[in-house]
Amino acid sequence: MKMRGTKLSVVGAGAVGTSLAYAALINGAATHVALQDINATKVRAEALDMAHGSQFLPPHVTVEGSDDVAVTAKSDVVVVAAGAKQQPGETRMDLAAKTVEMMKTLIPPLVEQSPDAVFIMVTNPVDVTTQAALKISGLPAHQLFGSGTVLDSSRLRWLVAQECGVAVSNVHAYIAGEHGDTETPLWSTATIGGVPLKKWEQQTGQLSPEARDRIADQVVRAAYEVIDGKGATNYAIGLAGTRIIQAVLRDEHTVLPVSAQLDDWHGISEVCMSVPRVVDGRGVGRALALPVNEHELQSLKDSAEHIREAARRLGF
């Protein structure tokens, strides 16, 4: 595989940003990881804690942390994990408004430091944040995209594997649409070991419509369950984010359900949301025109309108 570059910057030293930086380090996704946050004491401590384990990291991997945006200069990939914290009584739209307002001051200096970098948005609500950041940055559509439903699809595959008693690697299924309550499982194109789900159900009696509905509901509720138990989701998104980073830095041309601007995908346009797309050294590439049934298409159109309306309220 061709290495596109080796510097990764992660903006935001909270639970998600630090987990992502840590996962990237131990996977050797980049040889130089820079962690940036406005909290100088915390970001330096987080980077120092990771650096103390350098003996056990892949060779030639380094990490540094700073509150100065200059630490991100000349990055090959910049991951934005910084965002406003949701306060008691606040709605998701309140959170979106604060986060998008933050992006107006956060994104331009990052682009100035690394104009050729591929930008990956992780901050929630990720689809709205990605749509706003794309316009704020002025970058080409291929150069900035969101982590989308890569994590949701991983949750779906894990649950299907648990239900059917097979390895996760043998399950191929995507969640598309919003990274959130209106997301849609693409059951019609899902397979287990190459066997379409409809045939799998006929052959094994597993994955009935009721079971699929239960699994889809579990995927939607997964984040809420983790947050209720420990306050944040961080490990799985750290791994999912690292997978996306590797696809870019290794120029893999890997298909991942990331959130990016759509242009007439099954009639859906002018919105950032997740469908399976090719991810490579340039960033996000073409969207796969995989077939969807009538129910899935309507759900995806509803999801697109939900994102579009949220972005519209915020001026994007």
Rank of each mutant, 00 (worst) to 15 (best):
S19V: 07
E201P: 00
I307T: 08
E296L: 03
D127T: 13
R214L: 13
Q143P: 05
Q202N: 14
A73N: 02
H253T: 07
Q246C: 07
W187C: 06
D251T: 05
G138V: 15
F145Y: 06
K2E: 11
G285E: 02
A289E: 14
G238F: 03
I244T: 03
Q162H: 09
S19G: 08
K7W: 09
P115Q: 03
T18F: 06
V79D: 00
E64R: 12
G146N: 09
M93V: 07
G14Y: 01
H295G: 07
T130Y: 04
Q203S: 11
V78G: 01
V126K: 00
L314W: 05
C272F: 04
V43K: 00
D152M: 07
L156S: 10
L207D: 02
E270T: 13
L35T: 08
R282W: 11
L57R: 12
P185W: 03
Y235V: 15
K198L: 15
V128S: 05
Y224W: 06
E178W: 12
T91H: 03
T242C: 08
F316I: 14
S54D: 12
D213A: 15
S114E: 03
M50K: 04
M102K: 03
I227M: 14
D263N: 10
A161Y: 02
R212L: 15
Q87V: 10
I227H: 05
V226A: 06
I307R: 03
A45Y: 04
A97R: 05
T123H: 01
I307A: 05
G193C: 07
S19N: 00
T6H: 15
L288D: 06
E178R: 10
I175K: 02
V63M: 14
V275M: 06
I120N: 01
S153A: 08
A176N: 00
R157F: 02
D68Q: 04
I215A: 07
S269I: 06
R4S: 12
G146Q: 10
A247F: 01
R157T: 04
Y224A: 14
V128T: 09
G177E: 09
V248D: 00
A310E: 06
L256W: 01
A117D: 00
M3Q: 09
L35S: 10
A216F: 04
A141D: 13
V166M: 07
G165K: 08
H60I: 12
V278L: 09
W200K: 04
M102T: 02
G14F: 01
Q36L: 13
A45R: 03
T242W: 03
R155H: 12
V226N: 04
P140R: 12
D217P: 02
G229A: 15
I215T: 04
N293M: 02
Y235I: 13
A190V: 06
A311P: 09
V279I: 15
T18I: 12
P88C: 01
T31F: 02
A190P: 12
G315A: 12
G28S: 11
V258M: 00
D152E: 14
A133N: 05
M103S: 00
T204P: 06
R157P: 05
G180K: 05
S54E: 13
A133L: 08
A34R: 13
S114V: 07
A24K: 02
T105E: 03
A236I: 13
A70L: 10
A167S: 14
V160E: 01
